[in-house]
């Protein structure tokens, strides 16, 4: 394998692991949010805002990893 192939493999691993972490994190956050809203609908504003903060942070890293992977693999 030459260096370009290693680059493609590295980009795939970077984005794959980033997406895996984001998927697990998003699933946990949204499951707890939906559970909380179902139990106490009056807390909907607080829970959605907290979920928004959490998901925004969880997703920032995989999106950046995706961008870097695309750029490095070209």
């Amino acid at each position: 394998m030459d260096l370009n192939t290693y680059g493609y493999v590295a980009a795939g691993i970077v984005f794959g692991l980033g997406a895996l972490g984001a998927g697990i994190g998003n699933g946990l956050i949204f499951s707890k949010t939906v559970e909380g809203i179902s139990r106490q609908p009056e807390l909907r504003g607080t829970l959605t805002a907290t979920a928004f903060i959490g998901v925004g942070l969880v997703e920032a890293m995989p999106i950046i990893s995706l961008v870097l992977a695309f750029m490095w693999a070209k």
Binding site: N26, V34, P41, V55
Partner: peptide, 21 residues
């Protein structure tokens, strides 16, 4: 997306929408 998922949780409707990642 978050507002939409909260709406679905409040109304109890079932939908197959994702998180939009």
């Amino acid at each position: 997306k978050t507002t939409r998922i909260a709406d679905l949780a409040v109304t109890g409707r079932k939908s197959r929408s994702g998180f939009g990642y």
